[in-house]
């Protein structure tokens, strides 16, 4: 089976986030006075072949921990879902 995975990587609480802070400072000029606590992160999307959803999640988490996120400074969150079979209608 093929699964679509998305990994979101964020700086851990307590690690300075100059990108989020810079965005937040710019927001009032755009009329977003009501937005607070901006944190910048990044997301990665990929496909993974696995027997089941748990297996796909484990592989995606392994990739997140080994490469996509640095546990010293970042947290990651993994989502997986089964993809439609090849050739299926959308």
């Amino acid at each position: 089976m093929r699964y679509a995975a998305r990994v979101e990587v964020r700086l851990r609480p307590g690690i300075a986030d100059p990108e989020g802070a810079t965005i937040e400072r710019a927001l009032p000029a755009l009329g977003f006075d009501d937005v607070r606590e901006v944190r910048a992160g990044r997301s990665f999307r990929f496909e993974v072949d696995a027997d089941d959803e748990d297996g796909a999640r484990r592989r995606a988490e392994e990739l997140a921990h080994r490469l996509l996120a640095n546990p010293v400074i970042e947290d990651s969150e993994v989502e997986v879902h089964q993809m439609a079979p090849a050739g299926g209608s959308r």
């Binding site: 690690i15 300075a16 100059p18 990108e19 640095n70 010293v72 400074i73």
Partner: peptide
């Protein structure tokens, strides 16, 4: 640091 041969990490400079 990424290889774990030294501790900690280097993040984006203050004020970007």
């Amino acid at each position: 640091t990424e290889a774990g041969l030294l501790p900690g990490a280097l993040v984006k400079n203050r004020g970007l």
